[in-house]
């Protein structure tokens, strides 16, 4: 008997194609899973509206669930429960940091640009850092420089 919990566990195997340590579940983009006998309905939402990785993610979900023998999968992309960066789980944030990407600060704090000006360096945990660019190599990342490590790093943007 297929359960939601089982599907969620399998979805943990599907990673963000741009951040291979972060599962879609920990990223917070899976907003609902419904089971009807052998049919699986998944509702998901992109991090950014223009995220080009969305189609890869959908394909990965189909392939991964297929490996577990689940083939009747429909995926609906909606903005009913829109993504925001606070939806990244604590486990996800730890994985991001280990990957070298600073996790996003809480959205509550992001009322002033200052929050971005002094992002916490994922290497040394210091805040003697500078914002270099609010736009980075992907839509969801900004570029920073750590004066202590003397190296650039990226942060997952608060949104």
């Amino acid at each position: 008997m297929l359960t939601r919990e089982q599907v969620y566990t399998w979805l943990e195997e599907v990673k963000d194609p741009e951040i291979p340590v972060l599962s879609l579940v920990d990223l917070g983009v899976i907003t609902d899973v419904q089971i009807n006998y052998n049919d699986v309905y998944i509702e998901m939402t992109p991090t950014f509206v223009g995220c080009p990785a969305l189609d890869f993610m959908k394909q990965d979900i189909h392939e991964t669930l297929g490996k577990h023998g689940v083939t009747n999968v429909s995926i609906d992309v909606t903005f009913r429960k829109a993504w925001n960066s606070d939806l990244i789980t604590e486990k996800g944030k730890a994985a991001l940091k280990k990957f070298g990407l600073a996790p996003p600060p809480s959205r509550e704090l992001f009322t002033e640009l200052d929050v971005l000006e002094h992002a916490t360096c994922p290497r040394c945990n210091g805040s003697d850092t500078e914002l270099r660019n609010t736009f980075g190599p992907t839509l969801c990342r900004s570029i920073h420089y750590c004066n202590t490590c003397r190296e650039a790093f990226e942060q997952f943007k608060p949104l």
Partner: peptide
């Protein structure tokens, strides 16, 4: 930095138009 900024904003806007 500006090259990246305008390119990122382009991606956002084209993506938003698509939606």
């Amino acid at each position: 930095e500006e090259d990246i900024a305008f390119s990122s904003m382009a991606q956002d806007k084209v993506g938003q138009s698509h939606a």
